[in-house]
Design a protein around this nucleic acid. Structure first.
Lengths: 190, 190
DNA sequence: TGCAACTATGAATAAATATTCATAATTTTG
DNA sequence: CAAAATTATGAATATTTATTCATAGTTGCA
């Protein structure tokens, strides 16, 4: 893919994410996306067949970039270190661009999502589950239902990042990463 | 308000919530809402000026029914009991109708929300904050940032209820309420 | 029962929004 | 540099969806 094309696509994707944060997927109009991306409406149709395809392409891209997809192998590390690393990366990425979550959560139950995109959900969950199961077998993690623990972790990381983003003075510092992880760890440790 | 009218309104609101769960606020069409509620499209306009008003009325109703609005005074109880009671009620209501959350979360950033409805957010947060601050002063709660703790609690209760609902075999039992609360309590207790 | 007031219907119309396309600008190629 | 190829434009058109309204059914009341 040519450099210009990649750049243009990102311009469109960024605009779409920003707008989703303002008006939700319900409020997305092709004309607004174009305006936000500083291009003409017609230009959108050079890059995408239609609105549905644009949104599905963005969804696919965000899934491809999800944390498990990009993290290096950490399976040799201690469980709590593995979790800490994931925690940190997830927080950093979400705070860097919290709009991802808004888009992803809304898109999966929107009328736009394609059948093939319904299938892919790389996400945290499977990856986390493995780690937690291992942790349980090593007697480091509470013997509670894994799905419940995963739920706790994901719920917390999402709402914590949202809070950081919404709080004007909010900054993600080493301290707040550590403090939040420590709370999370207290919740799940044996 | 006459009995018939109340019934009809609930019929419309229920249909809207169900549809929101399927297609999000982005996919809501007046014709579909009518169909889902088993009435004619035109009938919707007897009860509501337009789509925007319908959605805002639903939002207002859900806010009015939020946990802090309905819970009896529990301020005389011990902190962990207060929290447990709120936890239980919140879970029960969300599991009973998890669609509330989907609707509320999407609606607040939709193009439909009115200025006056932007103001009301009875929600958990203020109520929880009071309780937590008291708990800190009594040395029962971690001395972490209150907003962070609130975020943890809300994030967990939301995603836990979503999980219960999505898991076909999922049932909210006394055991799972207690188990989930205990995890949460471990996270925030001193 | 018959009349008035209220409620419901859904096809017709209006409004909003997606998409196209003739034209123009820009970039690439020889 | 000129021609060809590519990319961009935004007003015009097509499509979707909200809203209206003439008509019909229902309910309550004398």
């Amino acid at each position: 893919m040519s450099d210009t094309k990649t750049k243009r696509l990102n311009q469109i994707f960024d605009a779409t994410l920003r707008l989703t944060g303002e008006v939700g997927i319900a409020g997305l109009k092709m004309s607004n996306i174009a305006q936000e991306a500083s291009i003409a409406t017609g230009t959108l149709y050079i890059y995408f067949e239609n609105k549905e395809e644009l949104l599905n392409a963005l969804y696919f891209k965000l899934q491809k970039e999800s944390v498990p997809a990009i993290i290096n192998d950490i399976s040799h590390l201690a469980i709590n270190i593995q979790l800490y690393k994931m925690w940190k990366i997830a927080l950093e990425r979400l705070v860097d661009n919290n709009l991802r979550i808004i888009f992803l959560e809304q898109f999966v139950i929107s009328p736009y999502i394609s059948e093939s995109n319904k299938q892919i959900d790389i996400g945290f969950k499977n990856y986390l589950k493995q780690i937690l199961e291992q942790g349980k077998s090593e007697n480091l993690i509470k013997d509670a239902n894994s799905d419940m623990l995963i739920t706790l972790i994901i719920g917390f990381v999402r709402s914590f990042s949202t809070q950081i983003v919404n709080d004007c003075s909010g900054q993600l510092t080493e301290k707040s990463i550590d403090e939040s992880f420590s709370i999370c760890w207290d919740a799940i440790k044996k």
